[in-house]
Design a protein around this nucleic acid. Structure first.
Lengths: 336, 336
DNA sequence: TTGTAAGCGTTATCAC
DNA sequence: GTGATAACGCTTACAA
């Protein structure tokens, strides 16, 4: 593998310190680790020598003998996206409570080999790993893995899936209840097909004999503020009578609200807006965003629990028993 | 240190696999690491044995030999705060470009010993480490450390400081330019003193012979949306003629805008609002937030560069030469 | 193609 | 209080 350019050429080891202080390596260990049974004078001499040599114990050698802390790898898409930032934060919290240290990788900015690198440094992995089941097997091998936000296939790895059916149904119910009839889904998708969110929304509409309408923003346009604005503009152009917008996520919903506001259209009086995710973001705007809110703490807890059980050998890694669903709940604020 | 409960009791090692497959340990290494010069049949047998035993190579033993990847510890206050999420994201990006893996710890949710744990797992540390210089020395010892968002003391560790003087002056200049005279700082502080941001704002005002006014929100109230709302309400109560609000950060600014909006006060026509930080958040609201924007990419780059140089021994860890300042720039959008 | 031997840099055990 | 010696589990020579 060769010498990595970031670190100094030759490591100074415990033996170097021992030599300089005129003691054995064991005494150095005692001094460095605040262990009892060492003369204060000797200890100072050792510490001094260590300082002079810029000695730092190798975390690998130490881990080899102490077995180290269990370390969890967390793969998120993008921390600049509040969804992932909030999720990561709660994972950090849940994981540290269980004694894990957490290493975070962003698939959006982490570079190509980031996930592969991760494998060498952790005891287990959770997160959004993308879709390729085969590659996951070959990259992670026997490592405990919990896929977050993935489809739950009976043979696949442990999975936590986001389910929108019930919540979208509740949202549509609510919109109908406040008299809305021309309801448009502002959908976003990596393929040319509607997303699962869009599909569930259409189902909820159809089961009430309401015509499902949708704007499908393609993957090459980000589902961000601008994407939301554009989608809302398109929706208004196609259905001028639109009186409710169900949005792919909170950020696009905020974009839609911005567009509406710029046209002097009142939310929720003229057009109601519903987001999905339940980010803290939703309360910074006026009116506050009505949304389908995930319980991030519970979601993180569940995921960390699952991987903890798998890592502890108390649960297998594949199969239908290790799939979990989490659903958001309709949170009615002001925008709908 | 004792056996950690998260991991299985006895590790299965390379020798166990070798025994089961009826080969030497070296052959196991060859099979596991996709090395050339191994019979496909043998390889399969070995891989099979490894799978059956749930064998996973020890990252410590491997790292001991290969020296592993350099790993950077990043300490942030709270990923639910966009400032830290955006900073972390850019650090992840800059660090991965330089071959570092990043381990993130949140001081707000990471538990008490989180930072101490970190030390055992990384080669260098950057981030918001709190204020206690003495404790930093004893926790990190000779480890390369760059303190982010800390005061730069001549004797202290390498530091990246946030400087607001010039930007706040520019902001006040702008506010005066658009005719504002009753300018209130919505400040926040952990002590009873004004923050550095508040101090610089007062200076900018005074140098223009404008009376400095400030609301100082104490530390026990979060500088969040609600904190911003409350501060704005207080400002209006004390100075009904207020025509501009300079806010401690973007989030409190958004809270202030919410309060103004709820009172039917127009932004920026009646009251101008300026935030600090330049978070993406600022564009979700209408009107978009005028703010003092940090260049997060540059900030992360600078910090990672500094720690890289220190870790590489190309720069010392203490002293005045390893202090850097970063300043935000006035970004005029719509709220002022 | 496969096996043997020698570290990697610590901490733990047990003498002294 | 201090020092020898043996693990820890792997990879990298080098030999067969």
């Amino acid at each position: 593998m060769g010498q990595h350019p970031l670190l100094p050429a030759r490591r100074v080891g415990i033996l170097d310190v021992a030599a300089r202080a005129g003691v054995s390596r064991q005494t150095v260990t005692r001094a460095m680790n605040d262990m009892p049974g060492i003369d204060p004078g000797t200890k100072n001499r050792v510490l001094q020598a260590a300082r002079e040599l810029h000695y730092r114990p190798s975390r690998f050698a130490r881990g080899l003998v102490t077995r180290g802390n269990p370390t969890l790898g967390l793969v998120v898409v993008d921390l600049r996206n509040s969804f992932w930032a909030e999720f990561a934060s709660h994972v950090l919290e849940a994981a540290s409570r269980r004694g894990w240290t957490v290493l975070i990788v962003e698939s959006a900015h982490g570079g190509a080999g980031a996930i592969e690198d991760l494998v060498a440094q952790v005891d287990a992995v959770i997160g959004q790993l993308g879709v390729d089941e085969v590659r996951i097997e070959e990259i992670f091998g026997p490592m405990p893995v919990v896929r977050f936000d993935a489809e739950a296939d009976a043979d696949s790895r442990a999975t936590v899936s986001l389910e929108f059916g019930a919540a979208l149904d509740a949202a549509v119910e609510h919109l109908v209840g406040i008299g809305r009839r021309t309801i448009v889904m502002l959908d976003w998708s990596v393929t040319a097909e509607p997303s699962r969110r869009g599909q569930h929304c259409a189902d909820a509409l159809q089961s009430r004999r309401i015509e499902p309408r949708a704007i499908l923003t393609p993957a090459h346009i980000e589902p961000d503020i601008d994407g939301g604005r554009a989608a809302a503009a398109e929706a208004l152009a196609r259905w001028p009578a639109a009186d409710a917008l169900v949005c792919f996520n909170d950020v696009t919903a905020l974009g839609a609200m911005k567009e509406l506001s710029s046209r002097g259209i009142s939310v929720p009086d003229d057009v109601a807006v519903v987001g999905i995710d339940g980010l803290t973001l939703g309360v910074v705007v006026t009116p506050e965003l009505t949304t389908l809110q995930f319980d991030f703490a519970a979601m993180a807890e569940l995921t960390v629990d699952l991987v903890t059980e798998i890592a502890g050998g108390r649960r297998q890694t594949h199969g239908v028993e290790v799939h979990r669903d989490v659903s958001p709940a309709l949170l009615i604020r002001q925008s709908a």
